[in-house]
């Protein structure tokens, strides 16, 4: 991969100085401090809106800084300061960033696997342990977990009487779960529509990319807009899904490990969809307002599309192990 270099090739652009990083680092520190102190005062039950001010200020500062940073790199690219070699650095950077995201999700998928194949059966008495007989008599493991070990011994009060109450408290299983309701109910099942939306949006995005590579600006804008609409409808349906879980199914974050894994996996996925849609929206406005992107040079869009395909693939795995299997 070593780059061919001769006298005519442009130098690798190394900016002389940059204030972007120190602003970003300050904003990140504000977010960390604000979130931590906000959560701590929330837990100490003396919360006031002011505790979160630092967090909001940090988020706004980070958004502004990143906007400046990205627009700076875009302007540099338009001025032709970015050599082909520099563009390769950006591509490598994005690829490895997505790999790090894969590993982040892998941790949560790993938890689901461990709980379902090992921890759950052990709690109900499988293997050589004595956890079931001594701690959780009467607990039977089944997935989705409708009755937690705490339910099995008579709820949080009985557990407190026995002398061991976790300070994160009550874990009551849900009334209903979100699993696949059978083929006859397929069309009334939100994840089916969500899967359709997300897979189609990925296909529309490829159409957009092909249009761009042919120099068809109108086609590009159209297919990208369609991708975005599908993406935002996905987010809306996911909101309906959560509403249903909370209001109709009694499924909460504290509904035992089923609720925890369900909300953390779908939640982080949903958060990534929102980020991906946000990034694509920026690309859309760059295209319609500033006529950015050419046939050959459209890395901003391409990186966003890699990201979008990544969240799509995560969703496929998620439907398989969170909802269906």
């Amino acid at each position: 991969m070593a780059h061919k270099e001769d006298g005519a090739t442009p130098r690798y652009y190394v900016p002389a100085r940059s204030s972007m990083a120190i602003f970003s680092a300050t904003a990140l520190a504000m977010i960390a401090l604000g979130a931590a102190s906000g959560m701590n005062s929330m837990r100490a039950a003396n919360a006031s809106g002011g505790d979160w001010l630092l967090l909001y200020a940090g988020l706004i500062a980070l958004a502004i800084t990143l906007a400046c940073w990205f627009s700076l790199t875009i302007r540099e690219n338009l001025k032709g300061m970015n050599s082909e070699q520099l563009k390769v650095s950006y591509r490598i950077g994005m690829q490895w960033f997505i790999f790090s995201e894969v590993m982040f999700f892998a941790a949560f998928f790993g938890v689901l696997f461990y709980v379902r194949t090992l921890a759950g059966p052990w709690l109900s008495g499988d293997g050589a342990g004595v956890m079931n007989t001594l701690l959780w008599p009467g607990f039977d493991y089944a997935w989705p977990l409708m009755d937690t070990p705490q339910d099995a011994i008579g709820g949080v009060k009985e557990q407190a009487k026995a002398g061991f109450l976790a300070n994160n408290g009550e874990h009551t299983g849900p009334a209903r779960n979100m699993s696949f309701p059978g083929w006859e109910n397929l069309l009334h099942w939100l994840p089916f529509w969500n899967t359709t939306l997300l897979v189609l949006s990925s296909i529309w995005l490829e159409f957009a990319h092909h249009s761009l590579k042919k120099g068809n600006r109108k086609g590009f804008n159209f297919w990208l807009a369609l991708t975005l609409i599908f993406g935002f409808v996905f987010v809306y349906l996911q909101y309906l899904e959560y509403h249903e879980a909370y209001v109709d199914y009694g499924l909460y974050l504290n509904s035992g490990i089923y609720g925890a894994t369900f909300f953390m996996l779908t939640g982080f996925h949903g958060f990534h969809v929102i980020m991906g849609a946000g990034i694509l929206t920026v690309q859309f406005f760059r295209s319609i307002m500033k006529k950015h992107f050419t046939k050959e040079d459209h890395f901003g869009f391409e990186a966003a599309s890699w990201y979008w395909h990544f969240v799509d693939v995560v969703w496929i795995f998620l439907v398989a192990v969170v909802y269906v299997y």
Partner: peptide, 17 residues
Amino acid sequence: MDIHFGTSFFSAAGGGD
């Protein structure tokens, strides 16, 4: 999440470990 939002990843009472 376990500390502040009631999940039970590391608490057997909710089926975690």
